[in-house]
Design a protein around this nucleic acid. Structure first.
Length: 591
RNA sequence: GGUCUGGUAGCUCAGUUGGAUAGAGCAACAGCCUUCUAAGCUGUGGGUCCCGGGUUCGAAUCCCGGCCGGAUCACCA
């Protein structure tokens, strides 16, 4: 609810009390933006009062309207049960002045509470793909949005740096790599490791096929293939701290990290604190042992440790294998413990795909049982999968869209498009052109992903390039660049007293849109939805472009009107920049 | 099979605690650059909001029952 709605709600409450003796609660006050086909700015739905008033809806609307007319409400019209209110120009001008004067418009009051946001969380055996891109962009944006909602935010990453998947890459590299390094091959480290992961799978499948050709059934063949046995042996050696295996592991991981760092930098995401699974899984094991001793869990005859969650309507869940090694859940418990030792966390958010909903339901219960106060409250920000036209992406089947390739492609597309427009920026340097292409290409990609409701699966078709026109990041960036161009040409941006001005409908619509922004930021925070910000930024840009098309700013002869329009333009630009920043999208001054 | 989740224009998606004749973009077609950046603006066509019931002044939205898709239910992560 924005400021205007607060004022109106109060007025409506006293009006209906006076008229009909109704003690209206907030639920009965239904205010919405007036549809464009009717006159007015805000509409009150009067149906909730009709019964008590015992009058026709249109009459109730008219009666309430009469009571509301005053300083804020200039006039009204009643259409059936809808009371359309026209707000006074002076009110809108006051709003604009306040917004223009607020250097941090969109920043909500401090809560003095700490939220930790975990996102990204890659495995170190392959490069990042489009699925990770969605995760990273959502995680970054959620963090920004919650900061704007007054939270202190710590962005964190848990790197899954150990396990059988890494051993597979390591083994394939030993067998087939001939000492290849990122330096020797010129490959990015994460891509190099990923290539060996794929190589492992290829050789492994060959072995399985051979075994099956000799009469072995598939399940046994998969288990008995020599490569798989070797990988498992390597994992065991790793756990025992074998020097050679650990050194190889450290070397190859360092290549991957260098690659990830580059990808993160290009994507524009970062972390305040990075945890490594290799450092947290032992902590998890000891927590499970403690829980076992306290009778929270039980041990089976084969030595494995389980949690019985049937009372919570769930299953029984394995926490330690019979050989004593830990599973995914174990390390998440350990990681959670370490985090709460390191930070005074009030709210913990995990940005993890919806395929892991069950996992986080269980984790929440387990942490609670182990006596961690934050267990019950943890938030699993569960987002949908990115699908290709023929289904899910699968690393091993080569049907992934690589993050680095995609970003490069988007930047190249942006550069190509701007080539057609060199005439608009004749004095541009190659460096600036590169910078614009980078901002615009990434802006297109980020907006494309973030504008979709995060909870839903989304489709990406590699055959169709991502748009740069219409409801896109570049459209909004372009609106911003246009405004900057105008502001550069306005020699002196003087803020006149903005009273006593007659404003046109498009100017009023813009102010009304601008006034919505804090409520939008709040909604995006409550719903954990960057898409809410996207929708708003798009609507704001549309409003501005329509206004810009119809009215001249710099050539307006009336000084007061020109000042109003300049103020409006500057304020729109400021708000676009703020909103785009919440999305992790940069805005260029020219494009 | 159990649980969760989704189904809106040819395609990709919006649609606020239930509100007026369900909206954008792309694609198609037709206009607008001697005027602040045409990555823009304006217009046309395009709908069984999966189907059937129910709740009420009013349902894409809430409830029940179907149909179709996806996820999940591992000593994988």
């Amino acid at each position: 609810m924005n400021k205007l709605e607060n004022i109106l709600a109060q007025q409506v409450k006293s009006a209906v009390k006076e008229l009909y003796g109704i003690e209206a609660d907030d639920k009965m006050i239904q205010l919405q933006k007036t549809r464009p086909e009717f006159e007015g700015h805000v509409t009150l739905v009067v149906f909730p009062f009709v019964k008590a008033a015992r009058k026709a809806p249109a009459q109730v609307a008219a009666e309430i309207g009469e009571k509301l007319v005053g300083e804020v409400v200039a006039k009204f019209n009643a259409v059936q049960g809808f009371l359309n209110l026209t707000i006074a120009d002076s009110f809108w001008l006051g709003q604009l002045e306040a917004i223009a004067a607020d250097a941090n418009y969109g920043q909500l009051p401090d809560r003095n509470k700490l939220m930790m946001v975990e996102y990204s969380s890659p495995n170190t055996n392959k490069p990042l793909h489009l699925g990770h891109v969605r995760n990273n962009l959502l995680g970054w944006s959620i963090a920004k949005i919650q900061e704007a909602n007054g939270w202190k935010v710590v962005k964190t990453n848990i790197v899954n740096d150990r396990g059988i998947h890494i051993c597979k890459s390591m083994l394939a590299w030993l067998k087939f790599g001939n000492g290849e390094t990122p330096e020797s091959s010129g490959k990015k480290g994460d891509h190099l490791i990923g290539d060996y992961y794929v190589r492992f799978d290829k050789e492994y499948r060959k072995q399985v096929a051979d075994l099956m050709a000799n009469g072995m059934d598939e399940e046994t063949a998969k288990r008995e293939a020599p490569l798989m046995k070797e990988a498992q042996a390597m994992l065991l050696k790793w756990e025992q701290g074998d020097k050679e295996v650990r050194e190889l592991w450290a070397k190859m991981n360092s290549w991957v990290y260098a690659g990830f760092d580059e990808t993160y930098r290009k994507m524009g995401v970062a972390f305040d604190k990075i945890y490594y699974e290799s450092n947290t899984y032992l902590e998890g094991k000891s927590e499970v042992e403690k829980g076992l001793a306290a009778g929270q869990f039980y041990r089976r005859e084969d030595g494995s440790v389980w949690a019985d969650l049937t009372k919570d309507g769930l299953d029984e869940k394995l926490l330690l294998r019979s050989d004593g090694t830990s599973v995914y859940m174990t390390q998440d418990i350990g990681t959670a413990k370490l985090r709460y030792q390191d930070f005074p966390i009030d709210k913990m958010v995990y940005v993890v795909g919806n395929e892991q909903e069950y996992h986080f339901k269980v984790l929440s219960i387990l942490l609670d049982r182990l006596g961690f106060p934050f267990g019950k409250e943890l938030v699993h920000f569960s987002y949908g999968m990115v699908e290709l036209p023929n289904g899910k992406m699968k690393s091993r089947e080569g049907t992934v869209v690589d993050a680095d390739d995609l970003m490069e492609q988007m930047i190249a597309d942006a550069r190509e498009i701007s080539k057609d427009k060199v005439n608009t920026l004749p004095d541009i340097t190659p460096e600036e052109a590169d910078e614009i292409a980078r901002k615009v290409g990434l802006g297109a990609l980020k907006y494309f992903i973030l504008k979709v409701d995060p909870r839903k699966n989304m489709l990406f078709n590699p055959e169709e390039s991502i748009d740069f026109n219409g409801n896109t990041g570049p459209f909004i960036q372009y609106t911003y660049a246009r405004i900057q161009s105008v502001l550069r040409k306005a020699d002196n941006l003087q803020i006149f007293k903005l009273s006593n001005l007659q404003m046109n409908a498009k100017e009023l619509a813009l102010i009304q849109r601008l006034a919505d922004y804090p409520a939008v930021v709040r909604q995006a925070g409550d719903e954990f939805s960057p898409a809410v910000i996207c929708n708003y930024a798009y609507a704001l840009a549309c409003d501005f472009n329509s206004f810009y098309h119809d009215y001249s700013i710099l050539n307006e002869p009336d000084e007061a009107v020109r000042a109003l329009r300049l103020t409006l333009a500057a304020t729109v630009a400021k708000t676009i920049r703020h909103a785009m920043n919440l999305l992790g999208i940069e805005v260029p001054d020219r494009m």
